[in-house]
Design a binder for these strands. Structure first.
Lengths: 352, 352
DNA sequence: ACGGCGCGTCGAAGCGCTTCGACGACCGTC
DNA sequence: GACGGTCGTCGAAGCGCTTCGACGCGCCGT
């Protein structure tokens, strides 16, 4: 057992200690730190020297109290099933990193605390603003966000974005892009292997929007779209896929928007006698890293988690400065062609 | 464009408003909230009613300043390559949930801010304590943690744990358990397919400890252990595995401690002519969820991320209360037998 | 020579809360 | 019936910082 010997309180130096040591007023030290008033070069240097020498760090609580700014933002993360864990993680990291660049810290809030959690951190002035991930089309938190005294930015797109600020990948165009790529290669029977059913049921925006994009593009290109949800886990994928090919033997183009399903899909297709890309072309909506590790390397539309995170934080910072920002920011999807798509071969096309 | 109309400052009610409304002193309200002094039933109820009516939420900054407790802990998360993302996530969620039960919030700090980040949040009194994940055997943050004024708990086990508080799965015993299970089934040639080489190079504790446990148990059981790192990505796994089977055709037991490698391994083995479990038995160190989704379902030792997270927070809370805690808490591994292990068949055993 | 204007600095008033000592009221005790 | 103890409440003193108004000084224009 260790006795957690908190040392005998050497007690952090306060701004008063710094002021005394530098021979100036407390307010002068404060202004040196904030730059909100002009301070002569010589005084500034003296103060900075004292700060360094004493190892002074401003007390966050006191600062927050006096300035009414905590310099902390809340990040509300989902912890539900069917989430694309690595994307969420990547996203969270981008948020933290960007927030730090704006001299802010990030408080982690789980969505299972629900709206109450949001209200708590906002009302207690623990945070200056809120970033909400995994927004559903009809999200119960949205009304709350609208009436919150603190600014917020949503990742994802609720049904009604009025009065909000939202950032997301343009999944609709992403879905279209996938289908267009396949259609242009000459595929005529295309399927979307989507997110787990629960995700659609929950009304999660990105899943619905992708599907809509897929259907729309397919219709334009006079292609028959089949869309169906897909659970996680290799076994589930295999089942879904076998079933799909059974019902549509002429299927030659596959759009996969379920990160977890990508590897199983690539493993299962050959087992079902379909080579990629000779017999079936596969486009995935998944992180680049993933697409490049797969074999064959996947043609894909990456979810730019990092960019979304950075954008979201930047927008929030602007709102904190009382600047005006657009209600909806949709990031343009970029489709990267790799080795998993090709024109359909005669054989595949003519499969009964 | 939305003009982010911050409404005309309805200004949160303060404790003084509550006191006035309830007809008591400010301090009385405070005591009702903290329970640190006896308050009569009738007064308490009057105060609580006012609080609810006014929608009062104590100001976190003011509270932190006056009480010298922020009620926030820092969680330092890795964002490096080779990490087991879902485990980290699961862990983070457990930490947040548990912290909330202790009425604390969680500040997310990335390890790429390095020791400086730690020092910053600790010195500014932004947080009361620190949770550090992904601790390496010889971690540069360890000395800093030792001299920090605030308590900390490490997830993982550095080379020298003196004066620290550490929680982790007992990976050494986990490695042993895997090998013992295989050895007891009768396997005589066993391999560990480990983490990416970079993880070992970095001196990450769990990888080294698992390997040590595997080797130790193998020696005891008079089994020849082969251990080798394994990169992520299906292609890399296939290569490593093919190579392994080439060099040791008599291999019949496989321990996999690389979450990302599990699915590829299961996909590759049949392709190389080895059925699971008839020809090769596979034990994985991975989340249960993962093991159950695989096919065949995997015999596994789960990393109890949730339990570790909960433990870590509890320990930190005890340290915050100045209670004494053990330096090292190792959680006992539990091996769950599923469908991926079996006694070796004659054929497999006699393979050239 | 004088008023006016910046610039650099200071002092003091909070920010909203916790906590400590004080103080009546009321109880039981010898 | 005076005394010590609890119990419940109050008032005030901070916690460490930001910010506002004030002030002295040197410099400009006239």
């Amino acid at each position: 057992m260790t006795v957690p010997r908190r040392r005998p309180a050497p007690d952090q130096p306060t701004i008063a200690d710094v002021a005394r040591h530098a021979g100036v007023a407390v307010s002068t030290v404060s202004y040196v730190l904030s730059g909100k008033r002009a301070i002569s070069e010589v005084t500034r240097n003296r103060v900075l020297a004292s700060i360094r020498l004493l190892g002074y760090h401003p007390n966050a609580g006191a600062r927050a109290l006096a300035s009414r700014r905590a310099n902390v933002i809340a990040l509300v993360l989902p912890l539900r099933a069917g989430m694309q864990v690595p994307v969420v993680m990547q996203f969270a990291m981008a948020v933290v990193t960007t927030a730090r660049r704006f001299d802010h810290d990030v408080l982690l809030v789980t969505s299972d605390e629900g709206p109450a959690g949001l209200r708590r951190v906002a009302a207690s002035a623990l945070v200056d603003g809120v970033l909400v991930m995994d927004v559903e089309l009809d999200d119960p938190r949205v009304p709350l966000l609208r009436e919150l005294t603190r600014p917020s930015v949503l990742i994802g797109l609720p049904a009604d974005a009025t009065g909000l600020t939202c950032v997301d990948l343009d999944f609709h165009r992403a879905g279209r892009a996938c289908v267009e790529h396949l259609a242009e290669l000459g595929h005529r029977r295309i399927a979307l292997l989507g997110a787990p059913a629960a995700v659609y049921d929950r009304g999660t925006g990105f899943a619905h929007r992708t599907r809509a994009g897929v259907v729309e593009a397919a219709t334009w290109h006079n292609v028959e779209p089949v869309t169906l949800p897909c659970e996680e886990g290799a076994a589930a994928v295999r089942r879904t896929l076998a079933d799909l090919l059974d019902r549509h033997p002429d299927l030659s183009g596959l759009v996969v928007q379920n990160e977890a399903a990508v590897d199983p899909v690539l493993a299962t297709l050959p087992a079902l006698g379909r080579r990629v890309p000779q017999d079936v072309s596969v486009v995935a909506v998944c992180p680049d890293q993933f697409a490049e590790q797969a074999s064959p390397m996947l043609t894909s539309v990456p979810v730019p988690a990092e960019e979304i995170g950075t954008q979201a934080v930047s927008l929030l910072m602007r709102k904190l400065r009382d600047e005006s920002v657009p209600e909806v920011t949709l990031l343009e999807p970029r489709l990267t062609v790799r080795d998993s798509t090709a024109a359909p071969t005669r054989a595949a096309g003519s499969r009964r």
